[in-house]
């Protein structure tokens, strides 16, 4: 299984540092985005719009046309609609008439999807994967640390069993750990809340059963956990704020990995998910 190319996209409004928001800045200043459910009336972009741009970027990177896609898997933790699926909305925007649906595991979206796809006996020939999370739309800017940590963005990639190009997927693991110290919650009508962040040791304990025995390459980590993982090796995260399921694809779209080098992608979801993807650059 190979990942032929990664893509990323962000809304246009800078939120300071390198983060972006899909909400107008004056709206945030005036209302603090309270109540959350009003955000959709003021937001400039939907998750599907940004997801479409990220997916087109991934296709360009993979040197493929939209028409070559045979299957679409989507993810979002900030849906404007809980039905249809995000995969179907993005595929529809691209004019695709192919099997489309969502595989959702919050921050472990890519590892959960690859966990399945890499274990299939006859995978579809070209899978477009996209995760779009416009998290500032569900932030209460009047309180908490969430407003300083999260951003808006989408990541995408093109997955193929046939074309030996980009990154080879060497190993994927995904599971749940109900004793996880990393807890994020978001009620349907509520703001996103970080309930607990793990220490480096607690996080290592959660990842240890999944990690490869030997690894000395680059580690791709979620921005929100970069500090805890920083002592494990050479760690990199994108700088656009925590983007949940979009994190890994966004970081991998931004970095240059030498041919034949390995990359260890670590993913965590606030619902107890823990994911690991071991990649090797082949071209």
């Amino acid at each position: 299984m190979y990942i032929l190319g990664f893509g990323k996209a962000f809304p246009n409004h800078p939120l300071g540092d390198q983060r972006f928001t899909s909400l107008p800045i004056p709206y945030i200043k005036e209302t603090k985005n309270v109540p959350i459910k009003n955000a959709l009336m003021h937001a400039v972009n939907s998750p599907s719009e940004i997801g479409e741009i990220a997916l087109r970027a991934a296709l360009e990177k993979a040197k493929l046309s939209t028409e070559e896609v045979t299957y679409v898997i989507g993810d979002t933790s900030t849906p404007w609609e809980t039905c249809p699926s995000e995969g179907q909305r993005v595929a529809g925007r691209l004019g695709l008439k192919v099997p489309s649906y969502d595989v959702t595991a919050i921050g472990c979206a890519l590892s959960a999807s690859l966990f399945a796809i890499t274990r299939w006996s006859d995978p579809p020939s070209l899978i477009a994967w996209v995760s779009s999370n416009l998290i500032t739309q569900v932030i209460d800017f009047s309180e908490g640390t969430e407003k300083d940590l999260f951003g808006d963005g989408a990541g995408a990639c093109i997955i193929s069993a046939d074309k030996e190009q980009g990154f080879k997927v060497e190993k994927v693991e995904y599971t749940l750990n109900h004793n996880s110290k990393f807890i994020i919650e978001q009620d349907l009508f509520g703001a996103i809340k970080i309930k607990s962040l793990p220490t480096s040791d607690e996080l290592k304990k959660e990842f240890e059963p999944l990690l490869p025995q030997k690894f000395d390459g680059l580690i791709v980590a979620p921005p929100i956990l970069e500090k805890q993982i920083s002592s494990w090796g050479e760690v990199i995260s994108h700088k656009h704020g925590e983007l949940l399921g979009s994190n890994s694809a966004v970081t991998l779209a931004e970095i240059d990995v030498p041919v034949d080098s390995q990359v260890l992608v670590l993913e965590k979801s606030g619902g107890g998910g823990t994911g690991m993807i071991l990649l090797r650059r082949v071209s």
Binding site: P79, S85, Y101, Y174, L176, D187, L188, G273
Partner: peptide
């Protein structure tokens, strides 16, 4: 009723199962 954790993750927790659990969604 909740976006995070996902429904599959909530069900796994209620069943006290630390196993792969995720949404596969098309209505």
């Amino acid at each position: 009723n909740h976006i995070i954790p996902t429904e599959a993750q909530r069900i796994a927790k209620a069943l006290d199962l630390s196993i792969p659990a995720f949404e596969v969604l098309t209505a």
